[in-house]
Design a protein around this nucleic acid. Sequence first.
DNA 1: CGGTGTGAATACTTTCACAGCT
DNA 2: AGCTGTGAAAGTATTCACACCG
Lengths: 251, 251
Amino acid sequence: MASQRGEGETTATPLEPADRERARAIPEAAVARLAVYLRVLSGMADQGVTAVSSEELSQAAGVNAAKLRKDLSYIGSYGTRGVGYDVEVLVSHIERILGLTRNHSVAVVGIGNLGHALANYGGFPGRGFPVTALFDVDADLIGVPVGGIPVNHIDEITAVCLEREVSIGVIATPPPAAQSVCDRLVSAGVQCILNFAPVVLQVPDNVEVRKVDLAVEMQILSFHVARRADEAASVSVGNNGLGVDGMVIRP
Amino acid sequence: MASQRGEGETTATPLEPADRERARAIPEAAVARLAVYLRVLSGMADQGVTAVSSEELSQAAGVNAAKLRKDLSYIGSYGTRGVGYDVEVLVSHIERILGLTRNHSVAVVGIGNLGHALANYGGFPGRGFPVTALFDVDADLIGVPVGGIPVNHIDEITAVCLEREVSIGVIATPPPAAQSVCDRLVSAGVQCILNFAPVVLQVPDNVEVRKVDLAVEMQILSFHVARRADEAASVSVGNNGLGVDGMVIRP
DNA sequence: CGGTGTGAATACTTTCACAGCT
DNA sequence: AGCTGTGAAAGTATTCACACCG
């Protein structure tokens, strides 16, 4: 994420009546959940379900009902009091807000094990994200089609990305190459990057980076294993609420 | 995350908390960043760097210095005022807190493209996470070694997980199979799950789930593309701080 | 009724800013 | 003189609880 949030924000216009349509500033966390609701709703639509209550939908999405309603309120009021939400209506509004009405062309850089797997997802998760370019440095791979797309040499990134109007770059290279690949994507005009390399990318403020970091995920799980072990130990010896180093561990 | 937090919690004890449950309970967000600091520090150690300031380390980790210091303060005070931190010391304390001093045996379920990629990471990211079991339903795969480990049939999950003391289960199956695989892992005693399937898993409270959701990540990026487009449009027509719908857009 | 929409209350995170140690 | 450690302030996010309405 282009780190620095508010730098010179002069207390962003306090009130001032609406000009165009509705009102919001959707919290990042809510955006992530909207994507989940969308998937659940799509599944329901496929099952022929036409209406849901916040309770049902929230259950299926693994959040609580109040949060769900609050999240939905950020995009407008499309429910019916006493009844619930129309599935189709909600789907289309969430799609609109998430920008899923346009297509987002995706380039995958680094066609190793992971890159292969990503390329083979074909038109990426849920459609709307067609993979249109693949890049690698390995001469043996150049020209070989993976998931239907021929691999280009990484030196062609700029030309190919511009030509195919790539809007999202996926980095699946080994760590040492990641920053340089990122720089090249950025200079090719790509403003959104999904990074699988275990590296902290430095990018200009106008570029959005999301990272998927296996090591971090595993380590968070490890932390919870450890927490649990401490807890168990404390309890069996007579829990005093303190863990290692006298730190109080969350319940 | 074992979803439901407070369900029947009767207005969560307002004040009584008295002493014990306070002081240090490491925020989830901080745990994730500690894992990042650890990686950066390990890299520094490999380069022969022996000391860092919060400023240097925070730069490399992509956060600001105050946040870094606060995060480190959760695990104790291991810096030297006026000087900075000893890299080795910090590494070992973070490892201890994250529970990386023990090994966490990992099982991967679903040996498709992604499962292959995961299995071939070999002793998972950063070591300490040896993959010791692989599972699939496909008869053609059973017994075939992937990344050095032979694939077992999914029906053997319970026996194999118990025997190999698997503590982390990784789900890389198609969506429809995910919940059932999850249930089996849980009944085999696995309490930590990393889920790559685009499905919201239902688990008991004592099980920790982390999800890696490609579709969600892409859609978040899509949202930002859309936000940016709106912004650009507003600006070119004379930005009044409001976006589409009169919504205030974050800077 | 029953369920949405939402202000107000609560909880959590991040940032500030400076005292305190080396 | 410089950098850590940390209370306190500011900023976000989540939850409560109830007015409101179909």
